[in-house]
Design a protein around this nucleic acid. Structure first.
Length: 475
RNA sequence: CGAGGUGUAGCGCAGUUUGGUAGCGCGCUUGGUUCGGGACCAAGAGGUCGUGGGUUCAAGUCCCGUCACCUCGACCA
């Protein structure tokens, strides 16, 4: 089969990955550009992925004791300035409302870039007694950050996310929460998105503005670059002091709480696309795929074919499978290509020959393997295949992740490594100068600090190494 | 913010060098034949050429400005 038979709609994934990405997100109907620079419209097919992500994550947040709430979009500008590092980090990219109801506002309002400040303000009211903590909230919301360069899902001026915010009585509990939620993210990424991730602490340079410590999960994309897929911050008492989040302890004294925040965004959809996509387009893991199985009637106008397709589809839906029938007038070949580009995990072909034989043809998106299945037991067969596809995608991503991590002893090796599309582990002395120098010479940044690993010397300055750091070029 | 590129029908593009009737492919509409890897025939609809100004008898085409988007880099969650 000729290669261009499949890919004439989108740029070559190996030749021009950025173009491939834009082609795919637009042509599969995930997203469209909004009328304002840097904004995106998340179209139904893309939003359905987000809804599936939300469903999975929300259940995990609730299982770990968090409750959903909603805090206001508009935040008094003065709130931003109460935490010194926070305002320094976010001031350059906030959107500010200065006029309301036709009149200039006495105090400008920030459109939230994140909600630590406004939630801190509320927590200071709600936290009174030592009996109150922990406060465990999550909100699903939009945030605005005035980005200079944008790409759909990866970096947009406005995006959707969840942000968890918690307040605890002790440092230990807050730290435990921070790590627990990082673990929740990691488990979700692997089991739902089929994306294995690297987790670990961020360097001072890379941490969240206002945090004591930031922990991140990093995912490897098709081109070997890294995407920060989620973060969990230990905020210490930075925000509790700035917003006076105190409680009266058993000993009769007021104590500042220890807070955390953690978030993942619609960027995860970008991660999904760039981690699993191939020459034909999207490859979506069944757990989050909007359509898990697409039924394609062959010779649909022949007596009984369309009816049989609809009834097969209804049977799958009844079994809890997200299935649809493509009853459009396009030719079967056109539909095969279209639904492959859209990343549907399983295609089911049903034609007159199949109906007569009481079977259907199943084609996997991940391996393109064709099998036949008896119509009587098709729901079970499909369920099993979807589970196999989910597992296979994770296995493939794991294999790539393991294969593409190398170790470097010199900056030259580090450079060669990232240029070859690898993540590179290297010793680091812990100083900012070396981190900056490495970034400058290799265009790679410190993604996370690797745990339980040892290196003798810093890859940059040759002094004694404090940590092993995972370096990569990043989105 | 720096460098490069692109704006012409819903989408993708040609036409701009050398100013002179607005084109092509896909898609769309109607009817018919098809259907197991992007089917075919016939007849149609659809464009103030991103935008503002200038030059000219005449501007998609030349000149100046401006806006938007894309890529790479810088900056940044």
């Amino acid at each position: 089969m000729a290669k261009d038979q499949f890919v004439n709609q989108i740029a070559d994934i190996e030749e021009d990955f950025p173009r491939w990405y834009t082609d795919v997100v637009l042509k599969t109907g995930l997203v469209d550009y909004g009328p304002v620079k840097g904004t995106m419209v998340i179209r139904p097919y893309g939003y359905a992925i987000w809804e599936n992500i939300q469903k999975e994550l929300d259940a995990r947040f609730k299982a770990t004791g968090h409750k959903n709430a909603y805090f206001p979009l508009l935040i008094p500008y003065s709130f931003m300035t109460r935490e010194a590092e926070h305002v320094e980090g976010f001031a350059p990219e906030v959107a500010v409302v200065t006029v309301g109801g036709g009149e200039k506002l006495a105090e400008p309002l920030v459109i939230r870039p994140t909600s630590e400040t406004v939630i801190g303000e509320m927590y200071s009211k709600w936290l009174q007694s030592y009996r109150d903590p922990p406060l465990l909230s999550n909100q699903w919301a939009n945030v605005v950050r005035w980005e200079k360069t944008t790409r759909p899902f990866l970096r947009t001026s406005e995006f959707l996310w969840q942000e968890g915010h918690t307040a605890h009585a002790t440092e230990e509990e807050a730290m435990e929460e921070t790590m627990k939620m990082l673990g929740v993210y990691k488990e979700f990424a692997e089991n739902c998105l089929a994306i294995p991730v690297f987790t670990g602490r961020k360097t001072e340079k890379e941490k969240f503005a206002g945090a004591v410590a930031t922990f991140g999960m990093e995912a490897m994309m098709h081109d070997g670059k890294s995407l920060q897929a989620g973060t969990s911050h230990y905020l210490g008492q930075n925000f509790s002091k700035a917003f006076n989040i105190q409680f009266l302890d058993k000993d009769g004294t007021h104590k500042y709480a220890y807070t955390t925040s953690w978030g993942v965004s619609t960027r995860l959809i970008g991660a999904l696309i760039m981690a699993h996509g191939d020459a034909r387009g999207l490859v979506l893991p069944p757990v989050v795929a909007p359509i898990q199985a697409i039924v394609i009637p062959i010779a649909a106008k022949k007596e009984g074919v369309l009816e049989a397709a609809h009834s097969l589809c209804a049977r799958l839906c009844a079994a809890g499978i997200r299935a649809e029938t493509d009853a459009s007038d396009n030719s079967p070949g056109w539909k095969f290509n279209e639904w492959e580009m859209k990343g549907v995990p399983l295609r089911i072909e049903l034609g007159p020959r199949d109906i007569e034989a009481g079977k259907a043809v199943l084609v996997r998106r991940d391996t393109h393997e064709k099998t036949e299945a008896a119509l009587d037991t098709i729901a079970e067969t499909v369920q099993a295949l979807l589970a196999e596809i989910q597992a296979n995608l994770l296995a493939l991503a794991r294999e790539r992740k393991e294969k593409r991590v190398i170790r470097a002893e010199t900056v030259q090796e580090l450079l060669a490594g990232v240029e070859g599309g690898n993540f590179v582990k290297a010793g680091w002395c812990g100083c900012r100068e070396c981190e900056d120098a490495i970034k400058e010479q290799t265009a790679a940044s410190a993604r996370v600090i690797a745990e339980n690993e040892h290196a003798d010397v810093c890859v940059c300055c040759g002094k004694k190494a404090k940590h092993v750091v995972l370096f990569a070029r990043a989105y």
